[in-house]
Simulated scan of single mutants.
Amino acid sequence: MTETPARTSTRTSLEVAGVSAWYGEARVLSDVGIEVGQGEVVTLVGRNGAGKTTLLRCIMGLHKQVQGSTTFDGIELHKRSPNQRAWLGIGWVPDDRGIYASLSVAENLMLPPVVHDDGWSLERIYEFFPALHERRDFPGTKLSGGEQQMLAMARVLRMGARLLLLDEPSEGLAPVIVQSIGEIIREIKAQGVAVLLVEQNVKFAATVADRHYLLAQGRVVEHLDNADFQAREGELLTYLGM
């Protein structure tokens, strides 16, 4: 395991310590520990089945067979429901984007409550995501894959989420759309929002993240700063089979 990268003085937003999780009797996470600072982008990198999405689900309270400690802004989350975690300021963007088919783009945006004063206004969202403004009356599922990803991210920005859990935002998208998603993540970071990103696209991850945790068989096996991550890009691509 590599030496732990130096951290900045950024205040810790999320701390996961000793988290293990199961599906039935199958153990999928083993004693996982990670941290994400305020205004920091951190990625979880690993092969399919490494436990990345399960860890996000544990943080959001969507996975029940879990042990260990998860704190957000110093608040222990163990006994809090997913709804309560959302009210604390944790935003969840699943890999299927979670767009409501029967609602328009505007209705999808307005559905969640605003949980923090820093939530983006609808005007700001439409300025930053002009495609959503153009299609605001369209049913959510009539959007392209990239537009659905933007809608899912814009929805939690309107909520005022202070921690964003992003699951494979670049998956299946054209390179020009992936570039736009990267710009959005960097803008979110500039606002002081913490981002925990599950990503298999190593090249994309290196353009947005400060640090990276490599998961294998449910364990954190390496913790790399972005400079080391970029230097080992070829090795990581081979490891991930990409």
Rank of each mutant, 00 (worst) to 15 (best):
T2K: 14
P5K: 13
S9R: 12
S9E: 13
T12D: 07
T12Y: 03
T12P: 07
S13K: 13
E15I: 12
V16G: 03
A17Y: 03
G18H: 13
S20E: 07
D31F: 02
V32Y: 01
V32S: 00
I34P: 00
E40G: 12
E40K: 12
V41L: 03
R47M: 08
G51R: 07
G51V: 08
I59K: 01
H63C: 05
K64V: 07
Q65L: 11
Q65M: 13
Q67I: 13
F72D: 04
F72E: 02
D73M: 10
G74K: 04
I75T: 15
E76S: 14
L77T: 02
K79N: 14
K79F: 08
S81H: 03
P82D: 07
N83G: 11
N83K: 13
A86F: 01
L88K: 06
V93Y: 07
P94D: 06
D96G: 06
G98M: 07
G98N: 09
A101G: 14
S104R: 07
V105Q: 02
A106S: 14
E107C: 01
M110F: 10
L111F: 12
P113D: 09
V114T: 13
V114W: 03
D117M: 03
D118A: 11
S121V: 08
S121H: 05
L122R: 02
I125Y: 08
Y126G: 05
A131T: 15
D137W: 10
L143V: 01
E147G: 10
Q149C: 06
A152P: 02
A152T: 02
R155C: 01
L157V: 08
A161H: 05
L164M: 13
L164T: 00
L166K: 01
P175D: 08
P175Q: 06
V176F: 08
I177N: 02
V178R: 04
G182P: 03
E183Q: 15
I188K: 05
I188F: 09
K189H: 11
Q191K: 14
G192E: 02
G192N: 01
V193S: 04
Q200H: 06
V202W: 03
T207W: 01
T207F: 02
T207I: 00
R211S: 14
H212I: 10
A216G: 13
Q217W: 07
Q217K: 14
R219A: 15
D225V: 10
N226F: 01
A227E: 14
A231C: 05
E233G: 04
G234M: 09
L236H: 06
M242D: 04
M242F: 06
